[in-house]
């Protein structure tokens, strides 16, 4: 009993000073670090290392140079285009939606309902999402048939195709704009009423308030959120695969094909493809983090 009452204070306080105790404390996070190394750090760094080696294991920059062959560049460009289009489109629409629901003077329940819907929609992705859009806007889909029956408009004769770039973009939008709403809601909540009142007192009109007060404050979070949407679409594989069956050669699809069967006839070039994706994601997350830091100053 005496032991039990003596030990506890030591367990929480004594380790602070002693070097040995500090080392012992690190043991507590060892399983997590082991897991992270085995299933995250090592696999990804092995790809990075592999992209600077040839099949025999010698160091080379040839794989990186080979990334600039037209078909691979096209894949990156296609992925970047679809991510940029859906990020910007999703950001604009999501922002307008969040603004309407939060500052548009609508009843409170609209906002609650919208946030719930967005929580669901931003998580409804992958294969089921592709199926939903095929059932709705495919050649025999519900909306396609409805437009023919009621308005006599055949969108497929007008050049629309769900299985090409714009069809995929439309599908991605389903999880992109809800994510934007979820990210922007707290930022819009952070716009203080006093700022608007203060600018009005000084004679600013609505446009001036937006141009000189609200927008500069919101801009970092707007840009940051757009970058997050970009990354969200850039890494997507399942939705595109289920929708187009690998017909649109996004970079993720090419990597998937390379895993399933060595289509590039050079596994190390495959690793370089993965490295390129990681580099683009690192750049976007770094930008995002930097912009987050700028937002945090105002939205406390």
């Amino acid at each position: 009993m005496a032991e039990a009452t003596q030990l506890p204070p030591r367990a929480t306080t004594s380790s602070r000073g002693s070097y040995f105790g500090g080392l012992l404390a690190w043991l507590g996070v060892l399983p997590f670090f082991l897991f992270a190394i085995l299933f995250l750090v090592w696999p990804s760094s092995s790809l990075i290392v592999g992209s600077f080696q040839d099949t025999a294991g010698n160091w080379t920059l040839k794989n990186i140079a080979d990334l600039f062959t037209p078909s691979i560049v096209n894949s990156y460009v296609l992925s970047i285009q679809i991510s940029a289009v859906t990020a910007i489109g999703g950001a604009l629409f999501g922002f307008l939606l969040a603004y309407a629901a939060i500052l548009g003077g609508l009843p409170r329940w609209v906002r609650t309902a919208l946030m719930t819907l967005c929580g669901v929609a931003s998580n409804f992705a992958g294969v089921p999402l592709a199926f939903a859009f095929i059932a709705t806007l495919g050649r025999t889909g519900f909306l396609t048939a409805f437009l023919v029956d009621v308005f006599g408009i055949n969108v497929y004769q007008m050049g629309f195709n769900l299985y090409n770039f714009w069809g995929l973009a439309l599908t991605y939008m389903y999880f992109q704009f809800p994510l934007m709403v979820l990210i922007m809601a707290p930022a819009l909540d952070g716009l203080k009423r006093e700022w608007r009142e203060a600018s009005e007192n000084m004679g600013a009109n609505a446009w001036q308030y937006w141009r000189y007060v609200a927008l500069p404050i919101l801009l970092p979070s707007l840009l940051g959120a757009t970058i997050l949407l970009f990354g969200n679409a850039f890494g997507a594989y399942a939705t595109a695969y289920a929708l187009t069956g690998g017909f649109l050669t996004l970079i993720t699809i090419v990597i998937g094909q390379q895993i399933a069967g060595n289509v590039l006839y050079n596994p190390n070039l495959g690793y370089a493809l993965a490295l390129g994706m990681i580099v683009i994601m690192v750049i976007s997350i770094a930008l995002y983090t930097w912009l987050q830091g700028r937002t945090a100053r105002w939205l406390r």
Binding site: P43, I255, Y271, A274
Partner: peptide
């Protein structure tokens, strides 16, 4: 991304 992770 998941596709890169599984590649690794």
């Amino acid at each position: 991304p998941a596709v890169v992770l599984v590649f690794g």
